[in-house]
């Protein structure tokens, strides 16, 4: 499941299940809560997410679009090797800032 926590003004959403069709709703709810924060800033921590499928990728793109519509940013952090390859191979990774560590992603919001 996916949980949301606050780190300063940044929302950090982390999960420990595959980002596939059956879990996209969980993530969608968690990220939608971030959208209520005015100009949303969020990091999706993928450290314990073993896999992303097409439904997950679609959700990521959809949520990124919603974040951008509110002049916010959704960043990805610590994807495993498989998820990194999926993000690169599908081109979805190009739409996101991807960090090796969640802390680095959170720190990047300090401009």
């Amino acid at each position: 499941m996916f949980k949301r926590r606050k780190q300063g003004a940044v929302n950090v959403v982390s999960g420990n299940v595959p980002l596939t069709g059956q879990h996209t709703q969980d993530l969608g709810v968690a990220l939608a809560e971030c959208l209520l924060d005015g100009q949303p800033k969020a990091v999706l921590e993928l450290q314990n997410v073993p896999l992303i499928d097409s439904a997950g990728l679609e959700l990521l793109l959809d949520m990124q679009e919603q974040f951008e519509r509110r002049a916010g940013v959704l960043k990805l952090a610590s994807p495993n090797a498989l998820c990194s390859d999926i993000l690169v191979a599908t081109g979805v990774g190009h739409r996101f800032e991807v960090y090796r560590e969640a802390k680095a992603a959170i720190g990047s919001f300090v401009q």
Binding site: G38, Q39, P40, R69, R70, A71, G72, V73
Partner: peptide, 23 residues
């Protein structure tokens, strides 16, 4: 990413970008 607004001489908003609307 920064909010931008334009106000007239009376201080009323005549334009606000998406970021400012969100903030």
């Amino acid at each position: 990413a920064d909010g931008v607004a334009v106000t007239d001489a009376e201080g009323r908003v005549t334009f606000a970008n998406q970021a400012l609307e969100a903030i």
